[in-house]
């Protein structure tokens, strides 16, 4: 069985400058958002907590709160962006 197409993690310019040395895009194994966060934390220790606390996530454009069980499909875009303010 061929390996699943990876998901593409994207960060904003400002966020990547602060936390990943300016690298904005990463490939990760699909599965769940928990797996994506763990993979990012493994590359940049401490980043997992920051992603959980500071971001909202857009999965193929669909905006979600960061919830571990959120499914991450093969080939999808996982875009971490700042949380939404309430008015």
């Amino acid at each position: 069985m061929p390996p699943a197409q990876p998901a593409r993690v994207v960060l904003t310019t400002g966020f990547s400058q602060r936390h990943t040395g300016g690298v904005k895009e990463f490939s990760v194994e699909p599965g769940t958002l928990r797996g994506v966060i763990k993979a990012m934390d493994a590359r940049f220790p401490g980043l997992g907590d920051i992603l959980e606390e500071e971001t909202t996530v857009a999965i193929d454009g669909e905006i979600h709160e960061v919830v571990y069980s959120q499914p991450i499909r093969p080939g999808c875009e996982v875009f971490f962006l700042p949380k939404i303010e309430s008015g």
Partner: peptide, 13 residues
């Protein structure tokens, strides 16, 4: 429309 790239990051869904 759906799929349009936003300036702040993700595509419109």
């Amino acid at each position: 429309r759906t799929g349009t790239q936003t300036a702040y990051g993700p595509k419109h869904a």
